[in-house]
């Protein structure tokens, strides 16, 4: 690991000011991704700004009836918060599907959004990688790509975003609040992460020096018809091959509103509003669900090791929609998929 200097920030202003002045700075929160990457020399910050003492560790009601989750609220605290469990069980379920109890105790809301891809080549400075070293190429496209993306890829990068939490936030249409050298702004979660295009080294639309202060959940009515279905190589403590977050509002047997986000398949949580619209005002039937899945996956592109994900995603979408419509969400403890 490289040597670095360390500053414990005592205010958001101080953190932003110190970071803005120096491109080699990184914020550190739970450290569960940054320290990992530093141990592999993928990240080599000359200076770390410890933001864990900032007063961003509260979950508060918003005026509109939503919740504002401070950036330093741990994944554990968010998942078990009674208000989140009650009003946004999809988020609680997605967080509990990820990582381990130890990691969730350290991992934070802000850090989780900014965790980087688990692409094997990205993690190995002995290999080229456009995301790690722009312009060196993407060995994953012709190499090992079992965990890679099938949607929204580019010829420069086929990495996925590994977060489970972010997939639920995408379905819940959260807002990411940030503070930076130019003041505060709010970024809709759908615009927060980006597709790789020809700049795969840029994961998000956050600018250097900007700090996430909170994630805001708008008021929602999805606490009965939801599910987070995560498929992976082992049943716990493994990243998603494919995951599906579904939130439905039902009126009788018909779907009044549908939200669906996919994880493990793209450089960002994947939404397809056109596909969701196929459900609006329609009865919740298997045929409809298949039509939704086909629409979402119509442009999916597999590579040698990950083509199986297209079929897996199709079935996962249908199953997740059935679970949500029936009001029988996937349990994150009993791993049987019903």
């Amino acid at each position: 690991m490289n040597r670095f200097s360390y500053l414990r920030a005592s205010s958001v202003d101080e953190a932003v000011r110190e970071a803005a002045a120096d491109p080699t700075v990184r914020f550190i929160a739970g450290g569960t991704n940054l320290i990992d990457l530093m141990k592999y020399n993928v990240e080599r910050p000359e200076r770390l700004i410890d933001i864990t003492r900032l007063p961003l560790d509260r979950i508060a009601e918003t005026d509109g009836g939503g919740l504002r989750i401070g950036a330093l609220v741990t994944n554990d605290a968010a998942a078990y918060d009674p208000r989140i469990k009650d009003r946004y069980p999809l988020l609680s379920s997605a967080i509990l599907a990820g990582a381990s109890p130890q990691l969730r105790n350290a991992a934070t809301t802000g850090g989780n959004l900014l965790q980087r891809t688990r692409c094997y080549y990205f993690y190995d400075p002995g290999t080229p990688c456009n995301k790690r070293e722009p312009g060196t190429g993407c060995p994953a496209i012709t190499g090992r790509n079992r965990i890679h993306a099938i949607l929204g890829t580019s010829e420069h990068c086929i990495a996925t975003h590994p977060s489970d939490m972010a997939v639920a936030l995408a379905a819940l249409e959260a807002m990411v609040h940030v503070a930076g050298p130019d003041g505060e702004r709010a970024i809709p979660i759908s615009d927060f992460h980006r597709l790789p295009g020809d700049r795969p080294e840029i994961d998000t639309n956050l600018r250097h020096g900007e700090i996430i202060t909170a994630v805001e959940l708008p008021p929602a009515d999805f606490s009965r018809h939801y599910t987070y279905l995560k498929l992976r190589d082992r049943l716990s403590y493994a990243f998603a091959l494919v995951s599906v977050a579904v939130a439905l509002r039902m009126e009788g047997d018909a779907v009044a509103e549908a939200r669906l986000a996919l994880g493990g398949v793209a450089h960002k949580p994947w939404r397809d509003p056109e596909a969701e619209a196929l459900l609006h005002g329609r009865p919740a039937t298997r045929d409809r669900f298949i039509a939704v899945a086909d629409h979402i996956l119509k442009d999916a592109k597999g590579h040698e090791d990950n083509a199986f994900k297209i079929d897996l995603a199709r079935r996962a979408i249908v199953r997740a929609l059935s679970q949500a419509a029936a009001g029988t969400p996937q349990s994150q403890t009993d791993k049987r998929i019903k």
Partner: peptide, 29 residues
């Protein structure tokens, strides 16, 4: 593993279990 992947390094910090391989000591002041 030294990378948060196994739990062998689990310790309890302020009542919560964490992976001690994924924490800088200065941050735990």
């Amino acid at each position: 593993c030294d990378h948060g992947q196994c739990g062998a390094c689990t310790v309890i910090v302020d009542g919560r279990r964490i992976n001690s391989c994924m924490a800088f000591a200065v941050m735990k002041d």
